[in-house]
């Protein structure tokens, strides 16, 4: 196998070329499947209402307008929800990274006393949760319901993310840490100065998971938030979209008043709201991508 590869150092074998072609093709198709609906949503948000209604909008705006965006940006609930989502995402991600690192690092040490037991506990809780009723009663008892805390704190330790990070930490050569310890660094100093800088790719990935998770989370708000001032953006969006579903299911209409109101919020307005909800988190990605690439390079040089 290795010899064959060497022989093809300056060109690909026929089989590899076919593979490359098929692979590229499939990846392009998958990419388009993700991109095109998004593109159509964007086009609809900039198109005139009639063009959207008559089904003329595909991947480029027809009868270009920005009135829908002006309309959405005038809604006070949009701004108040945006504020909640930004705060929750920033504080949540920061807090989650700290807690996840502090949990994953000790668990990555094979000499930790009771390590297996703790890992078992975490995995057990990942697979089985108490369910909604005990969770609600708990959140209510500790005064979290209807506060921003409920949107931030319970999501701060994603066990799957923690295990990913733990596995990454385990890959770091023990010798590096030992050398730091010889220089007099304690555990915390070793973690901050040696382990974390070497784990930037993993941290960037998990940070992105957390940030997207916090940003996209509407379920927590749906259950625990009743006060409009703590409603996150995704919940606002959920409500906008749910409103219109009453119209689509003509067989199962809600109150007539609700249907009428839904008819006022046109598809262009919904599309614009969805775009405005997606854009902020999409802006985060390019900044983190830098770390992905850097991380890969670091790995390759050392490897």
């Amino acid at each position: 196998m290795a010899n064959k590869r060497k022989g093809a150092a300056f060109g690909l074998t026929a089989g590899e070329r076919v593979f490359e072609f098929v692979n590229t093709f499939i990846l392009i198709v998958i990419g388009l499947m993700m991109l095109l609906p998004f593109l159509q949503m964007a086009s609809k948000s900039f198109s005139g209402e009639t063009a959207v209604l008559t089904g003329n909008v595909w991947f480029w705006p027809v009868d270009f307008q920005t009135g829908t965006y002006k309309y959405v940006l005038r809604e006070s609930q949009f701004w108040s929800s945006l504020k909640v989502s930004v705060i929750v995402t920033i504080l949540g991600t920061a807090g989650a990274m700290i807690i996840t690192c502090l949990t994953a690092y000790p668990l990555s040490k094979t000499w930790l006393y009771g390590r297996k037991f703790f890992v078992f506990l975490f995995v057990f809780c990942m697979l089985f949760s108490g369910g909604m009723v005990p969770s609600y009663i708990l959140m209510k008892a500790i005064g979290f319901v209807n506060t921003m805390k409920v949107l931030i704190i319970p999501g701060m330790l994603g066990i799957y993310n923690m295990i990913l990070l733990k596995n990454f930490f385990e890959e770091i050569p023990e010798a590096l840490e030992e050398s730091a310890q010889l220089d007099g660094a304690g555990s915390l100093r070793t973690l901050i100065s040696i382990v974390l800088p070497m784990s930037l790719p993993a941290i960037a990935t998990i940070g992105l998971f957390y940030a997207v998770g916090y940003w996209d989370n509407y379920m927590t708000g749906l259950i625990y938030i009743q006060k409009p001032e703590y409603k996150p953006l995704q919940l606002y969006l959920y409500e906008l979209v749910v409103e219109t579903q009453h119209v689509d299911n003509a067989g199962n209409p809600k109150t007539m008043e609700a249907l009428e109101d839904a008819a006022l919020n046109t598809e262009s307005i919904r599309s614009a709201t969805i775009m405005l909800t997606c854009v902020p988190i999409m802006c985060v990605y390019p900044f983190l991508q830098k770390y992905f690439v850097k991380g890969l390079r670091v790995g390759s040089v050392k490897g």
């Binding site: 909604m132 009723v133 609600y136 009663i137 209510k140 319901v145 708000g221 749906l222 259950i223 625990y224 938030i225 009743q226 919940l235 959920y238 409500e239």
Partner: peptide, 10 residues
């Protein structure tokens, strides 16, 4: 309120 179950619990 949004969720029926949460409402009943509340």
């Amino acid at each position: 309120w949004n969720d029926e179950k949460a409402l009943v619990l509340e």
